[in-house]
């Protein structure tokens, strides 16, 4: 029974991978390919957030700080040193690892919402500081190479190479998350989320587990930020560290199902086309619609299904299609 479910899930993933692989070949217009790239980027960010927010249950409302660092550092090394932005990616990862330790060490001593409040405060603080820091382009921001000096600048005119690079990163992230969720660390994260006191009594190193989850999550969020900056060739305080960047990751993961592998991907598949549609239909006049959309989703999730669409599926779908571990 369990083997049959596992095989069904494996086939489901293979089918999804096939759809993603052929999508830009079927939809060849720049508009649809752009939606595909945006969707993949959102899925990467939300899946990265999902490690600490979904699996470990430590809800970060300021993951934009890691995304922003990931976006700024590659463009900084290009602007000030003339290096390819790609070389800034590992530097950004080191910076966010240090940042996550600074944020996580004091806040993970406490339980409850302190971590959420701290992440929100630090992200806003960094956004304000970067907005006045000339080295980071202050309020105007930074730009990447306008004309590529070689392939290593990763500046392409077509969306296609970005699409497949992003798809590769997403596949790697999902593979890492899958391995992690099957490991001792993965079980410990879920135990911490379910109940810290009980987890401690079973020898789970709660603070260390939360900190490692944050570091892993921050590293992948930073990569998402770097991909965004390299692809867009531009970043400013709002697009890097803005509150919408943080909230989008959270909403996408929660909509699909936080703490599940597929959840953030489902959330991105639903939310990004919806967001693009509202932006296209209403243009600049509808710029506030994104906030309304996010607010509406939060209300619906809180009222009807905090576990997101995956949980909804596990509750109402025909039993043979559910994910095995659910009680009858």
């Amino acid at each position: 029974m369990k083997e049959a479910t596992t095989s069904k899930i494996a086939w489901g993933w293979l089918a999804l991978a096939a759809v993603f692989l052929v999508y830009p070949l079927v939809f060849q217009s720049a508009f649809f390919r752009d939606i595909g790239v945006l969707l993949l980027l959102a899925a990467i960010s939300a899946s990265a957030w999902n490690i600490v927010g979904g699996y470990a249950g430590q809800v970060s409302v300021g993951h934009g700080m890691f995304f922003g660092v990931g976006a700024y550092v590659p463009l900084m090394v290009f602007t000030h040193l003339g290096w390819p932005p790609l070389l800034g990616v590992p530097i950004a990862i080191v910076v966010v690892l240090v940042l996550s330790v600074i944020v996580g060490m004091p806040t993970f001593r406490l339980q409850g919402h302190y971590f959420s409040m701290a992440t929100l405060a630090v992200a806003e603080l960094i956004r304000l500081l970067v907005g006045t820091w000339d080295f980071a382009g202050a309020a105007i921001g930074l730009s990447g190479p306008a004309i590529p000096r070689g392939w290593w600048d990763l500046t392409f005119t077509s969306e296609l190479p970005y699409y497949y690079i992003f798809l590769g990163v997403l596949a790697t992230l999902l593979l890492v998350t899958w391995q992690v969720q099957r490991s001792r660390f993965g079980y410990y994260m879920r135990a911490v989320k379910a109940g810290e006191r009980a987890a401690k009594s079973l020898g789970v190193p709660v603070r260390r587990t939360k900190l490692f989850a944050l570091m892993l999550s921050a590293a992948f969020t930073s990569i998402a930020g770097s991909l965004y900056a390299i692809k867009t060739g531009f970043v400013d305080p709002e697009s890097g560290f803005g509150i919408l960047v943080s909230v989008q990751m959270l909403i996408i993961a929660a909509l699909g199902g936080a703490g599940t592998l597929i959840g953030p991907l489902i959330g991105a598949i639903i939310l990004i086309p919806l967001q693009t549609a509202t932006n296209t239909w209403f243009g600049g006049g509808g710029s506030g619609l994104t906030y309304i959309l996010y607010g509406g989703i939060i209300v619906l999730l809180a009222r009807f299904e905090p576990g997101g669409l995956v949980e909804l599926w596990n509750t109402y779908a025909p039993r043979r299609w559910r994910s095995g571990s659910h009680a009858p």
Binding site: R190, A194, G195, A198, A199, S201, G259
Partner: peptide
């Protein structure tokens, strides 16, 4: 090892997964 007066089981994990958290130590 200890148990709790009000059972503090990990609700969203299966019985096997709950026990595995302890076994991992």
């Amino acid at each position: 090892g200890r148990t709790f007066q009000v059972p503090a089981t990990f609700e969203d994990m299966t019985i096997l997964e709950n026990v595995m958290v302890g076994a991992f130590m």
